[in-house]
Design a protein around this nucleic acid. Structure first.
Length: 392
DNA sequence: AATTCGATCAACCGCTCACCG
DNA sequence: TCGGTGAGCGGTTGATCGAAT
């Protein structure tokens, strides 16, 4: 750490802030095709002006196909409360027990809803000294020694009081987060309160030690089932699709080169400028202007495996629909004309980027999963969205 | 109708961990 | 064994939206 290592995002020329649809598309397409064996190299290879960290976050928290969107169910909330009582702010561990939910999401939900519910004092905490912003400043000024929401807080003041190690774990959580071993001594008496524990596949060590890092790894093969649902609750998400979204295997968006200033990546990389973007892009398979159906031959740029596992068919629709909705694309379309090639397939479209530039998201969905799905028996054309409906 | 305020959530930052040479 | 590097985690911030005034 320290050691003079510059923050990854402090690099010159990298985008920050909200992601654009095009960036999303590039990231999705790249990961679907090559996985994410190396986050640091990924943005460069995918032609994204983002740091790897940012890409990773975006993928994990927003673009991952197995994400469950929408409000938390009561059961999920209960699970969070109980797990938090036992684990404290171990959001990633809590998230591992809530399939389709991210640590960030859970953290937000906890801080905005559950904390108050569990510990009304926590709500007052914020209101007591005014707005949350004021509170932050006050804390920064050194006044507030307000401990973070800790297991002790929740366990000592709420319904989840039977976490025997409440006080201790609370202290550890807020003061010595490093004392993992103790934190992980969970109160087994709580186990029967947790819905996901009914799952025979559940092992408590899953909480203590995160699920085998089955990252969406170099291979998209990382099946969705692995990362997020070691202790699948009964409120399981829609049929878990494989990491690769519907139809992606066969209809990947062709990533095209972004014309980034050659020196930019040199600066970013600090590697002496040998890796101009276009060069990298040329080396990286991503930009290959080939057909969308070339996936099976694709070689990960950095040796990552590309196993693009096929998700369950039934998993395709929900993921696609969800993401489309998320991006404002969802809706019936009546008059969209696919860019058809000689064979009437999008894959024949020689260069999707031109369209993508205007409308990257719709282009992606029409050229990718959605169109692929169209070719599947039983899939309704109504699922295809019209770029006219984009609010972009 | 305009303004204020609070809630929400995506994204960033800094740190630690784990792996590899 | 040690140091460097990348990944991951948890805390925090800031933009946005909706409700209240």
């Amino acid at each position: 750490m320290g050691k003079g290592r510059a923050p990854c995002c402090a690099k010159v020329g990298l985008n920050k802030g909200s992601w654009t649809p095009e960036e999303d598309m590039r990231l999705i397409a790249y990961i679907q095709k090559y996985g994410h064996a190396n986050w640091r190299a990924l943005p460069k290879q995918a032609g994204l002006l983002r740091c790897g960290k940012s890409c990773r976050l975006r993928w994990i928290n927003y673009l991952r196909p197995d994400l469950k969107r929408g409000n938390f169910t009561a059961e999920e909330e209960e699970t969070i409360i109980k797990l938090h009582a036992m684990l404290g702010n171990k959001w990633s561990k809590i998230a591992s027990c809530l399939p389709g939910r991210t640590d960030n999401e859970i953290k937000n939900v906890w801080n905005t809803h559950l904390k108050k519910r569990v510990s009304p004092a926590g709500g007052e905490e914020r209101g007591a000294d005014g707005s949350k912003k004021k509170k932050k400043k006050a804390a920064a000024g050194g006044g507030a020694e307000e401990p973070l929401p800790s297991p002790s807080q929740s366990s000592s003041t709420t319904t989840t009081t039977n976490c025997s190690s409440g006080d201790d774990s609370g202290e550890q959580q807020s003061n010595t987060s490093k004392e993992e071993p103790d934190d992980d001594e969970l109160d087994l008496e709580n186990l029967d309160m947790m819905p996901m524990l009914d799952d025979p596949a559940f092992g408590f060590d899953m909480l203590v030690d995160p699920v085998p890092p089955a990252p969406y790894g170099p291979a998209v093969s990382v099946s969705v089932s692995a990362p997020t649902s070691p202790c699948a609750s009964s409120t399981s998400p829609p049929p878990a699709p494989a990491c690769a979204p519907p139809g992606v295997d066969d209809h990947l968006l062709v990533l095209t080169e972004i014309d980034i200033d050659h020196e930019l990546w040199s600066i970013i990389d600090g590697d002496g400028g040998a890796s101009a973007c276009t060069v990298a892009a040329a080396e990286a398979p991503a930009p290959a202007p080939a057909s969308c159906c070339q996936l099976s031959n694709a070689e990960p740029p950095s040796g990552g495996a590309n196993t693009t596992s096929h998700g369950a068919e039934e998993g395709k629709e929900w993921w696609l629909e969800d993401l489309e909705r998320e991006l404002g694309l969802w809706g019936p379309v009546e008059d969209y004309q696919y860019p058809t090639g000689p064979h009437g397939l999008v894959a024949d479209h020689p260069d999707p980027l031109p369209a993508m530039v205007d409308d990257p998201v719709s282009c992606y969905f029409q050229a990718g999963p959605a169109s692929a799905m169209l070719q599947e028996p039983g899939y309704s054309a109504a699922a295809v969205t019209s770029s006219n409906q984009m609010g972009l």
